[in-house]
Design a protein around this nucleic acid. Structure first.
Lengths: 157, 157
DNA sequence: TATTGTTATACTCTATAACTATA
DNA sequence: TATAGTTATAGAGTATAACAATA
């Protein structure tokens, strides 16, 4: 760290950060932008964005759940999840089955193609994680996850 | 932590998180959403959003810098920063002065009203920080900031 | 030629109201 | 009445191309 950075904080262009550097929210935003940038590039070959990947993971881990349940778990508004499911079905990655107990709701499940894509996704995401956490030891990465969970896990509300 | 959460991860609705729970990018996104939610509510009385607050802080800490420099430091595209500066001038918070050395660029500075608003903002942001980091010790909060900087500081590219 | 601020524009994300079919 | 999925829509946020003034 430079002397200037130690005093008030200074960015790449030589500008002082003022109070920003010490704000968790500001650091979160900058870190997330950078991590998502790497994710987007990593998953471009699979044609998946972060929200789509997380939705597929959640559907696979919780087959038979409704759109409302999956969307809520991801913090996605129900109306906005409709288009995502439409695309999943169009690409043959997931399907909506009529629930046997409540004909209003859709029981979601991955297709074979969806499972296959997720297998590729898990390989890619592992490389992505290793890349973004390259400057951290395994202990530090675990500590970062622990602190982030304490900050933001909806379940901890 | 519940037994289920220890195994594969489980959210508030009882859904398994699958691989998501161990991903830095996913945890960053969820944490940032929650933190920004608190920020937005905290700063509603001042009429400032996170990007606006950070821009005002940066202008105050670096008076005389150009729009391009301030925008670049925040990761904002130059065209998108124009409307933000327009609003700052309309509300009397900041001004664009013609640079004496390069008549193409604008030397930015806060007005008295802008400085006054920022003084209120710094009080509010301190309370906001205390609130979101309530579950963390001071050591943990410092460690979180350190790890986030390692992940995402553009200067560390 | 290159750069600053600007305009226009488009694309994505996100949020809300209202409809339908079921419950 | 209330809920699940859906449609329509509107508002942010973000990205690029192109122009005028200036370097």
């Amino acid at each position: 760290m430079t002397a200037a950075a130690a005093k008030g904080g200074e960015d790449a262009g030589g500008l002082s950060e003022g109070v920003l550097g010490g704000l968790v929210g500001y650091r979160l935003r900058r870190a997330q932008l950078k991590v998502f940038e790497d994710f987007l590039a990593s998953f471009a070959p699979l044609g998946l964005k972060p929200a789509q990947f997380s939705a597929l993971v959640l559907i696979e881990a919780n087959p038979g759940r409704s759109q409302r349940e999956i969307a809520a778990a991801l913090g996605i508004q129900r109306p906005n999840f409709v288009a995502m499911m439409d695309e999943f079905e169009r690409r043959g990655l997931a399907r909506r089955h009529r629930s046997q107990t409540d004909r209003r709701s859709h029981a979601l499940a991955l297709t074979e193609a969806g499972e296959a894509l997720l297998r590729q996704g898990r390989v890619i995401v592992a490389a992505h994680e290793a890349r973004i956490a390259a400057g951290l030891s395994e202990v530090e990465r675990a500590e970062l996850l622990r602190l982030l969970i304490r900050l933001g896990t909806p379940a901890a509300d």
